[in-house]
Design a protein around this nucleic acid. Structure first.
Ligand SMILES: [Zn+2]
Ligand SMILES: [Zn+2]
Ligand SMILES: [Zn+2]
Ligand SMILES: [Zn+2]
Lengths: 184, 184
DNA sequence: GGTGGGGCTGATACACTGTAACATGGACCG
DNA sequence: CGGTCCATGTTACAGTGTATCAGCCCCACC
């Protein structure tokens, strides 16, 4: 991984993105990710004439701060501080907005959300790799898979409007380390 | 569809299976599906030395009676009669058993379940086609997709243990009819 | 300036999905 | 008969997501 997955499309922000289950014991984390994602989202909202409010920004920041799927209630909890109580319902609304804008993705198999700093349009045929050992998640586009699937669907006479492709397993880093529980 | 999807693997039971969102206005339904699935499951449980109890049978029958994803609470409700109240928790336990044995599949994107009369072993790389118009669901194996995905995963250094591939869209029948709401 | 509408948020309540814990009853075995 | 295993019943509860109403802010419009 790392410089392997999530290539494939323009990459207007040339610096390796934020997500990609960095849990693999590296370090580059903790300084770049979240901020970049938030800034990019803010820019895009401006150009799209949408409101990038504090709530939405904070929710996105909370999600982007982790490289693993976060539940809506987790997010609410993390955002709540002694002077500010964030209800889950508010988080859901923000997440609705963020997913519609493509800033976060929903992981059906976990009832959770991950941030995204890419610019794949709508039906990009994404694949999510979820590591059972470290809990990290990685997102990638897989043109070969997508075209094979399109062909299969066409053969079945089915017209797709959205796809969900999530894989569970063990990431290369965990596998290499023979890991079994160092994750948060 | 219809005699198109879900080919691809041995097919020891040569008779067109039960599911395959038959909702497309045909008729063959209502006589074969559910019963066949139940009988097959019963046979397999015997050979496997497992108990195919009344609850399990009835749950499977309820799921097999519909060619669309059913929620656990839906199932419980359908099974409950004036003389018999089935709690959702019982349904969940039965569903756990049935999914482990491969008699039903869970549809993550709907929090629902569908019956299966196939014999694909464990990691068969299934694709679920869910029609937005009629609500029907169809299951198929797609070797081309699977191999492309395996290759992609291998390239990413990821070792998969389970996959979820669900597609939403419009089935051929609905598309042909220009449908928009005749489903149950 | 006033006024109304639209979008965002807060807050409460509720529906839906899923699990934990404990008790009962039957089958099977010593 | 006592003990064990398994399936089920029952209750309670945790987790996930929505509906609804009210307040607020900003902005267009009068
Ligand atoms: Zn993405
Ligand atoms: Zn890992
Ligand atoms: Zn199947
Ligand atoms: Zn259809």
């Amino acid at each position: 991984m790392r410089g392997h997955a999530q290539r494939e499309q323009g990459q207007e922000d040339g610096h390796g993105q934020e997500h990609g289950h960095d849990h693999h014991g590296h370090d580059a984390c903790g300084g770049h990710g979240a901020g970049d994602v938030v800034e990019r989202a803010e820019r895009l909202c401006q150009t799209r004439g949408l409101q990038f409010t504090r709530l939405r920004r904070d929710v996105l920041a909370a999600v982007a701060a982790e490289h693993k799927p976060l539940g809506a209630y987790d997010i609410a909890e993390r955002m709540s501080a002694p002077g500010r109580r964030v209800a889950a319902v508010s988080v859901y609304r923000a997440l609705d907005f963020l997913t519609e804008q493509g800033f976060v993705h929903r992981i059906s198999s976990r009832n959770a959300f991950v941030s995204c700093g890419h610019d794949h349009g709508e039906g990009a045929g994404l694949v999510f790799l979820i590591c059972r050992t470290c809990g990290g998640i990685d997102e990638m586009t897989a043109p070969a898979v997508e075209s094979a699937l399109d062909q299969t669907l066409a053969g079945a006479g089915f017209t797709p409007t959205s796809r969900i492709l999530e894989v569970e397993g063990e990431c290369g880093a965990c596998r290499g380390r023979g890991d079994a529980g160092e994750n948060a």
